[in-house]
Design a binder for these strands. Structure first.
Lengths: 250, 250
DNA sequence: TCGAATTTGTGCGTATGTATC
DNA sequence: GGATACATACGCACAAATTCG
């Protein structure tokens, strides 16, 4: 391993990665086989294997046993729009996002009473172990699961009201804002933080990706004034989605 | 290699990953050594090695040669605030983010005249190959590079004006909104899309991460009404940053 | 239809270098 | 200096899936 150089397998991976992102190797094309890589770059079998593995771990390519390694459909096409800002008129450049926004899909949720974990308590500005209602959702579009989310609401607020269970009662599935309005709590702002991390195995199993592939995590807290009324973690596969915001300036 | 089971190295990696995220293995602790893993899980040396490699590729742990494999400082502590929404009063829960927002750092930029690549042209609603001014930035906090960004402005708008070069003239470094205001263009909205992808080698070199580790990419377009006046790609390491938005509801 | 060649997926043993303790 | 532990690399083996004659 020569001097200040990178390890061989990273050098090979980098070269292939570059070819993928600049279009030399477009989606659905086959990568050179392990044997070809070996001879083309003058490296051993292990190095060629490692290089492919790096790209697979990044989600750029997909190995098909007995057939080859193929460049994956890259573009994170779908956007999930998170803001209600509107420009005037129908010719606005944001109409598409708005149609994307109304996710015409199905979902299922399951609620459970719980004592607030430390991090959730902090986000809700309540004491740890105070009771909360946790609801887990899985969202599907045309049958395929694409998004999962876990939401927490303090029972101090919703307990013993008709909206205590998000997925039951007259306002089932109508969203936090409407449900809270029904008990005279007026949600007027939401804070969201977008991050990314490798998917846990359970998430990958649900969302169809592989464990370790990046997911986008939206940490969201709805508030009425400065009072948090709901906080949630939303998880989507990073290779298929982007989160869109449209904001006024000034 | 029994039937529907996962490969051994993924099973081991998953187990360790779980222990990391649920706090059993907190940051800075040492993972079991390769030999320990080998005996604890009843697997070979290679499998233990592969499992560690998976976690390293995900950025969860960091190998220190001769010492051990250590859980990395996980929390994506810093948030980059992207919205100017304000609640009333000083006791607002968003003061911190606001202080985070005014990135007390340094940056350097380098501008270059260019013909718009197809994707940029689409984002700016101009014809491909129309001239644009491209500016590359590297942002540093206390000397350390943390964010890079590439911005494009149509020369149709800024050409032959005092603000043609973002980093020169009387308004150097004052931001798009102020610069455009100086030539009587009033930016009133911004669209942002947040996604994630593996870092390219060049980005990893600048940002200090490893190629393949996830980066957050913010695709931003400033507009005056429906007229795009600037578009940019902002890249930050996903393991250290989150992008924060604070929005009004309704 | 059968079988051979190819290719990926997984796993083993080993060797060498280097950083840390 | 010596022991430990990671980092990279090589070669080999075999199973399973796919492709193709």
């Amino acid at each position: 391993m020569p001097f200040g150089e990178q390890p061989a397998y990273l050098r090979v991976a980098e070269d292939l990665r570059q070819q993928i992102v600049d279009g030399t190797l477009p989606p659905h094309t086959r990568l050179p086989s392990q044997a070809s890589i070996r001879s083309a770059y003058g490296v051993s079998d292990t190095v060629a294997l490692e290089a492919r593995k790096v790209l697979m771990a990044e989600g750029l390519v997909e190995g098909r046993s007995g057939s080859g390694t193929y460049v994956r459909e890259q573009p994170a096409q779908r956007t999930i729009s998170r803001s209600g800002y509107r420009t005037l008129g129908d010719c606005s450049p944001f109409r598409q996002e708005q149609t994307d926004e109304r996710v015409r899909g199905t979902w299922e949720g399951h609620s459970e009473r719980q004592e607030a974990p430390a991090e959730v308590a902090e986000r809700l500005s309540i004491e740890p172990d105070e009771p909360v209602m946790r609801t887990r959702y899985v969202f599907r579009m045309s049958g395929e699961p694409i998004m999962m989310s876990t939401s927490w609401e303090p029972l101090r607020i919703t307990g013993r009201t008709p909206v205590m269970l998000p997925e039951q009662g007259p306002l089932a599935g109508r969203g936090v804002v409407e449900r809270m309005a029904a008990i005279d709590i007026h949600v007027d702002n939401v804070a969201e933080e977008v991050g990314a991390r490798p998917a846990l195995a359970a998430e990958a199993r649900v969302l169809g990706g592989l464990p370790g592939h990046a997911v986008l995590v939206v940490t969201r807290t709805y508030r009425a004034g400065s009072l948090p009324v709901e906080t949630a973690d939303v998880v989507v596969p990073a290779d298929r989605f982007r989160i869109a915001y449209h904001l006024p300036v000034r």
